[in-house]
Design a protein around this nucleic acid. Structure first.
Length: 153
DNA sequence: GCCAACGTTGGC
DNA sequence: GCCAACGTTGGC
């Protein structure tokens, strides 16, 4: 079975609806080494991805997506006009990597953070650990299936 | 707006 | 290599 993932996005910044509309996007602007390492070293084309909305009134998983490319350097790190510009990165020695993400399907309903916390079947899920701030993280396949089942219920 | 948790930076 | 200071994330 493929590895499964969860990505966070603030809906004010890049909501799932926009990914649906555009079909596919570069998952750029990630500036955390752990998250980078997941994208650079462990993601494979086709891996399933839960799409999570953070910093919003009702945070939760809203859709399914999928890894759509091999890793490659995040072009925004070289762009002095970008908010993600990193002066220490060069094309010869890129520091930040990303993958493309494509929309698969919106969940029938939002699976909220609150209900995930209450669900014994999701115990141990990295998203639910205290103080978790990673914007890209692995998800156990059974946890991903459980979230899908909750969304269908 | 508050605050806990965490990552990063930089002085030593 | 330690650790305090600082900035950011993100739920509430």
């Amino acid at each position: 079975m493929a590895r499964c993932w969860l990505v966070k996005s603030e809906p004010d910044c890049y909501p799932y609806e926009q990914l649906e509309r555009e079909g596919r996007t570069m998952w750029d602007g990630v500036r955390n080494y752990q998250a980078r390492n997941f994208m650079r070293d462990e993601m494979r084309v086709g891996d399933p991805v839960l799409y999570y909305h953070s910093s919003t009134a009702v945070p939760g998983v809203v859709g399914l997506a999928r890894v759509a490319s091999e890793p490659y350097p995040d072009p925004t790190q070289f762009d002095a006009a970008s908010e993600y510009y990193d002066p220490k990165a060069t094309p010869e020695a890129p520091r930040w990597f990303l993958v493309d993400i494509e929309a698969v399907e919106r969940l029938p309903r939002v699976v909220t953070l609150a209900e995930m916390k209450e669900d014994p079947a999701l115990e141990g899920m990295q998203l639910l650990r205290r103080g978790n701030r990673l914007s890209v993280m692995p998800v156990e396949p059974e946890h991903l299936e459980r979230v899908r089942a909750l969304a269908a219920s």
